[in-house]
């Protein structure tokens, strides 16, 4: 009998403790599946960020370094340069990557560091209880924008993938989502491509993943998916923003 489905070896045998309807567990699983597929578990070092995903080391079954808020691209640079034959990825949220760590992500991309970055955009600060993120939508209510985000005081949602795609050093920049089976498959494909590019020495890649946060958005898991599709995707369109090595023809 052929086994066609199993828990990835790259995940520990423990249940996820994320909130109901949260996208992190899906994204953790997709990363783990890709690492299994590529057979790189024994040479991967992942970076756990500050935020909801800090407990990545409780779930991933490979080496993990926890890094200060916003600094994963710098620490990933240190890991990769010290061990060029290892596979290094950072897992970062929107506060980590698009607010406090903006300088680090831009310069890691600009140096063309041969690393993979998985950027989870849920338009809020989940861990701290739902404050405004740089990616919070205009009008979106958060605990620090109680009447909705206003341009006048808080500016606009930051488009990280669009921004990074203008940087010469970046090789592969893509935005995906985990709202549907189809988009999960696309996300998995993007994560795997990002790892493959790193293995082939093709340089910096970032996969931005739109992900639901029902608890802080104040919706049911089901309504969160609707909101993500209707509101988030219209501000953050899915697609490949840059692929230096895209196979043509």
């Amino acid at each position: 009998m052929k086994k066609i489905f199993q828990r990835p070896t790259s995940l520990k045998q423990v249940p996820f403790r994320f909130c109901p309807g949260c996208g992190h567990s899906l994204i953790h699983r997709l990363i783990a599946e890709c690492i299994d597929n590529l057979d790189i578990r024994e040479r991967v070092v992942g970076i756990a960020p500050v935020g909801c995903a800090v407990f990545a080391y409780d779930y991933f079954n490979f080496d993990i370094l926890e890094v200060a808020h916003g600094r994963p691209p710098a620490a990933a640079t240190g890991l990769k340069r010290a061990m060029p034959d290892r596979i290094i990825f950072s897992y970062q949220g929107d506060g980590d990557l698009a607010a406090i760590g903006t300088a680090e992500i831009i310069h890691a991309a600009n140096r063309g560091e041969n690393i993979s970055v998985f950027f989870v955009n849920n338009a809020t600060y989940g861990m701290t209880g739902g404050q405004m993120a740089p990616t919070t939508l205009l009008g979106q209510k958060t605990t620090t924008t109680p009447s909705g985000r206003k341009v006048k005081t808080s500016g606009y949602p930051l488009h990280v993938s669009e921004l990074l795609s203008t940087i010469e050093g970046a090789s592969y920049i893509v935005r995906t989502s985990v709202d549907s089976y189809k988009n999960l498959i696309n996300t998995k494909g993007a994560i795997e491509k990002s790892f493959r590019y790193q293995m082939e020495g093709k340089g910096f890649s970032l996969v931005e993943i739109l992900s639901p946060c029902p608890v802080d958005w104040g919706f049911t898991p089901k309504d969160s998916i609707t909101w993500l599709r209707k509101e988030m995707m219209s501000v953050y369109p899915l697609g490949t923003f840059k692929d230096k090595f895209e196979e043509t023809g």
Binding site: V45, V67, A82
Partner: peptide
């Protein structure tokens, strides 16, 4: 490895990563 970092923050976090790798 020599890296001129984008900031002192980045520089020492690069050191943090390299040190974690055993360097």
């Amino acid at each position: 490895v020599f890296i001129q970092a984008e900031s002192e923050l980045a520089a020492i976090n690069m050191v943090y990563g390299a040190s974690a790798a055993g360097a």
